[in-house]
Simulated scan of single mutants.
Amino acid sequence: MKILVTGAAGFIGAHCVLRLLRDGHEVFGLDNFNDYYDPQLKHDRVRWVQEQVGDFQLSTIDLADVEAIAALFAREKPEVVIHLGAQAGVRYSLENPRAYVDSNLSGFLNILEGCRNHPVKHLIYASSSSVYGANHHTPYSVQHNVDHPLSLYAATKKSNELMAHSYSYLFGIPCSGLRFFTVYGPWGRPDMSPIQFARAIAEGSPLKLFNYGEHQRDFTYIDDIIESIARLIDRPPQADVDWDRQQPDPATSMAPWRLYNIGGQHPVELKDYLALLEKHLGRKARVELLPLQPGDVLNTCADASDLAHATGFQPRIELDEGLGRFVAWFRTYYSLPIANAARG
């Protein structure tokens, strides 16, 4: 198929492009290469993909650029859109909220308009486990209520699900929303804990552990995310003819619209997660214990049974194995010496 991948130079986007090209799809991507984190990492991801499968079409376009997005759809006419581009980060949304409105709301509207004006077979878009917000009932199910987000980032992701539903209902666009749970692995984002923690351990600098390391995260290795996306491409949702307006299922609809959790389903306390990183890096961390940060949720755990039912697949790579792969990449990419200190 001819597939547009937004955020193609991002962590998940680059891995997705690589898999799609290996599967024989015609792929073109877009990314704005913004400086939320060092753009060099994004360029290096693109080069990594090119070294393995050759060059691919990649446009430098901002999602909020109405005319550029419209022109791209008119010119390329994708059959499938995998929308992974967004302004990421829970904590940054407290500092720069307008970046989230521009990218995650206005940008997503531009993607929906492109799919409306040039109909696609399937729009797959990234949501987030953060939409579960104040809900403390785990494992999180796509049937649960998500009306109480704890950050603007989470609110924009919930909004994306609602926007997609309205376009799916009005214009028949098959839409699948994917709620990702703490994705990690090689080429990850430097604002996320794997690189932040690994760098601090390698350098022997203090490592901030919020909520005193007592909250849990459902870590999901990048390969499991990509396998899930690849399997969903040719499984666009169908309208649920049995959908009950009196007792509506939040995960399905009378429109061709669907939600899926993609998570490892084995939550780990951050203290235990840190211990695994220490093992793979070969030294102990210097830890600074701090209270829970605004916008963070206490625990996450995915119920991915709907994904398994739809695709026959659910995440399977254990955290110990995944962190081992991550650390091997980290050592090579960053070439950071291990500081002189007692090893543990």
Rank of each mutant, 00 (worst) to 15 (best):
P315F: 08
Y92T: 14
A198K: 01
M1S: 15
H309Y: 13
F171S: 00
A285S: 03
S253L: 02
Y100S: 08
L30G: 09
V297Y: 06
Y125S: 07
L336A: 10
D65S: 02
Y153W: 11
A71C: 09
N32W: 12
G133S: 05
D218E: 01
N145K: 10
A155T: 05
C115W: 01
D218C: 09
T332R: 15
E113K: 11
S166V: 03
R316Y: 13
M1I: 11
E214K: 12
P186L: 12
V297F: 11
A275V: 13
A308V: 04
I201S: 07
T156Y: 06
S141E: 02
C115P: 09
L290V: 13
L21H: 12
A328R: 10
A308D: 13
L323H: 05
D296M: 13
V66A: 09
R19D: 09
K42A: 04
Q143R: 10
A275P: 00
K271L: 11
S193R: 11
L323T: 01
A9T: 07
V101K: 14
D31W: 07
F313Q: 04
E79I: 03
R199V: 14
D147G: 10
L162N: 00
D102C: 04
L232T: 02
V241S: 09
I317R: 02
E321A: 13
D65R: 09
K158H: 04
K121C: 00
T6I: 00
E269I: 12
Q247I: 09
E288D: 14
Q196S: 08
R316H: 15
A68S: 13
F171C: 02
L232S: 00
V17S: 03
V90T: 12
N110V: 06
G204R: 04
D191L: 08
I82V: 14
H137Q: 11
N104E: 00
A275D: 05
D147C: 00
E278W: 06
W329Y: 04
G312F: 02
I229S: 02
P194K: 05
P39G: 01
L336Q: 09
D102Y: 10
F330S: 10
R331E: 15
A164L: 03
N34D: 06
K284P: 06
L307W: 08
T311E: 00
C301D: 12
L94K: 14
P186F: 10
R19I: 09
H280E: 05
V297K: 05
G29A: 13
T332M: 14
I195P: 06
P97C: 09
D35R: 04
F28I: 15
Y273W: 14
L298N: 15
I338A: 14
R22V: 11
A230V: 08
A198I: 05
L152G: 07
H165N: 03
D320E: 14
G24E: 06
V120S: 09
S141A: 00
A68M: 11
F313P: 03
A64W: 12
P149W: 11
T332E: 15
K121H: 05
A70H: 14
G188R: 01
G264N: 10
A155P: 00
H144Y: 08
D62C: 14
T332V: 15
K208V: 15
Q265K: 12
E67F: 01
P291Q: 11
S127Y: 12
